[in-house]
Write a protein that binds this DNA or RNA. Structure first.
Length: 292
DNA sequence: TTTTGAATAT
DNA sequence: TATATTCAAA
């Protein structure tokens, strides 16, 4: 019935990402994403010069004031001024920070489980440097997490002794940081097949126009968003997503209850990406937030 | 063909 | 352990 839809929509709203999280996605030209994603290994290339690493150098610090945060950029390399690794495109391991996860979960939630495929998720996240492989890998783990949670929630059984529900193993810490959409945990209820009229791939075409517009002057908006620093309910109670705004207007929502503050700490500072060296291994952290 | 999903590797 | 990489299926 319609109420059912409204029900999960309501929950959905609670978990709605703050516009600050989703909106400020600065869409860099697709070239980077696609290029990086496409530069996969060549099955048979005799002597073909490998494509350029495309390492976006984002002048890291050195500019305290400037546009706050534009887009998250996964850079590579560490190399600063030098040259790029050229042939070996071995990027440092991606470190999924709570914020990055948040964006991931939001994307999955908005896409729906059916449409939540690596490529689409990656596109929605619009994190520069994020590859489909990165998302796929994480998605796999995320699904296992959901499955595990389902099993615990459902029945139980009692397997020997594991404290669950109250105690969270360190493994789940990261996932626990982000609220999981309810519908994800309840597949067997009415129609788990709620297909949202959202536009998945069609957005690509919009990209052209959007990125142009985005590149035009979104920085101002981004700065403003940052000022808000409040998350919870928008004046309008609705968020506008470039993609979603296309047709998802049938959402009758009733925001009344205050947002259920999850585990989000008060620190909501988003930083630029930082490169850290751990165990001699360079890992790339997107936007580290003093969480934890 | 491209992409997904899971196994596997590091 | 977390993430990357590989591999077969859709």
């Amino acid at each position: 019935m319609r109420e059912d839809d409204s029900t999960w929509f309501s929950k959905w709203e609670e978990e709605l990402p703050s516009p600050e999280e989703l909106m400020p996605l600065s869409q860099t030209l697709i070239t980077h994403d696609l290029a990086v994603a496409f530069d996969i290994r060549n099955p048979n290339s005799p002597q073909q010069p490998p494509p350029p690493p495309l390492l976006p150098l984002q002048t890291p610090s050195s500019q305290p004031n400037s546009a706050e945060f534009d887009s998250a950029e996964l850079g590579g390399g560490g190399g600063a001024t030098g040259d790029e690794p050229a042939r070996t495109l071995k990027r440092p391991r991606l470190v999924w920070t709570p914020q990055l996860h948040k964006r991931f979960v939001d994307a999955v939630a908005h896409l729906g489980i059916k449409n939540a495929v690596p490529k689409t998720i990656m596109q929605l996240m619009s994190v520069d440097g994020l590859t489909r492989e990165n998302v796929a890998s994480h998605l796999q783990k995320y699904r296992l997490y959901l499955k595990r949670m389902q099993g615990l929630s459902s029945g139980g059984g009692g397997a020997g002794g594991g404290l669950t529900g109250g105690g969270d193993p360190a493994t789940d810490h990261l996932f626990a940081s982000s609220p999981v959409p309810a519908h994800f945990l309840h597949p067997g209820r009415a129609n788990s097949d709620n297909f949202l009229p959202f536009v998945p791939v069609a957005a690509l075409q919009q990209h052209h126009h959007q990125m142009a517009a985005a590149a035009a002057g979104h920085q101002q908006l981004q700065t403003q968003y940052r000022q808000i620093g409040h998350f919870g309910s928008q004046p309008n109670g609705q968020f506008e997503h470039p993609f979603l705004s296309r047709q998802s207007q049938t959402v009758h929502h009733r925001i009344g209850a205050p947002v259920n503050n999850p585990v989000v700490p008060s620190s909501y500072v988003e930083d630029m990406e930082s490169a850290t060296v751990a165990n001699g291994r360079k890992v790339l952290t997107l936007f580290p937030t003093g969480d934890d």
